[in-house]
């Protein structure tokens, strides 16, 4: 499953937040979308999941745009929002059922998978609880369980680590690696750069609504030989430069 964003100009109102953003995510690849607050990470993601309409440019999933075929486009995606968002009047179990219904999942198979995921994130004894009353971290886990319940080919994950305990962060990264091996593509935005450096195949560095640079960590090191070795150092150098220019 490939995601292709080309020359995307977009934003919430008339004023574009994104100015000519282009990058892609290939089959079985985990791409990290890195940027400061307000750089346009979530805006980019909102465009990809079809919440916002591009002013210019196209977004293709396997060569299909949203306008060409809504069904083809949307059925491939699983999305984990930055702030967990749950139904006030549904229990955890009903959230899972809702997901199965929406993605047309086989009931027995899905429940088998769900039980494993619930156990992994220590939610298995809370099936009849209301996620609305959970802590932020636990609600985030609900969103993760719902997303990884599906057979989606493209995962869009917006800043997943905030509020998660270290064990859950590790488990989430394992889940992502597994799906990657099965051929799914993942786009993940994050601030946690050392984790990103260890797990992401490639990085797209956004600054002020534009792609500053992209590539693997090796390529980035070559591009910025004086900046240092870690993604953290490279990014800080870039961000400071960006602030001055």
């Amino acid at each position: 499953m490939t995601l292709e964003v080309s020359n995307l100009v977009g934003g919430y109102s008339q004023v574009p937040v994104l100015k000519d953003v282009s990058f892609d995510v290939k089959d079985g690849e985990l791409v990290g979308l890195i940027g400061l607050n307000g750089a346009g990470k979530s805006t980019t993601i909102n465009h990809i999941i079809g919440l916002l309409t591009p002013f210019k440019g196209t977004i293709k999933i396997n060569g299909t745009t949203l306008d060409q075929d809504v069904k083809q486009y949307k059925q491939q995606i699983a999305y984990i929002p930055e702030a967990p968002i749950v139904y006030k009047e549904l229990t955890l179990k009903e959230h899972l059922e809702m997901t199965m219904l929406a993605y047309n999942l086989d009931h027995d198979q899905a429940w088998q998978r769900a039980r494993k995921l619930l156990k992994l994130f220590r939610l298995d004894n809370k099936l009849d609880w209301f996620p609305d009353n959970f802590s932020k971290g636990m609600r985030q886990k609900v969103m993760i369980v719902c997303a990884f319940l599906t057979n989606a080919k493209l995962f869009i994950i917006d800043e997943p680590f905030l509020g998660l305990d270290p064990l859950a962060v590790n488990d989430l990264l394992n889940l992502i690696s597994n799906r990657k091996k099965q051929g799914a593509s993942i786009l993940m935005s994050t601030h946690v750069l050392d984790t990103a450096q260890r797990y992401c195949d490639r990085f797209v560095l956004l600054h002020d609504g534009q792609v500053r640079t992209e590539g693997t960590i090796e390529q980035l090191r070559q591009l910025f030989p004086d900046a240092g070795d870690s993604l953290n150092d490279i990014y800080l150098t870039l961000a400071r430069e960006g602030g001055q220019s």
């Binding site: 999941i49 919440l51 069904k71 997901t99 993605y103 989606a152």
Partner: peptide, 14 residues
């Protein structure tokens, strides 16, 4: 419709 619908009903859009 409810706030979480855009996440949960995303694949059912058609």
């Amino acid at each position: 419709v409810q706030d979480p619908d855009y996440v949960f009903l995303l694949p059912k859009e058609f």
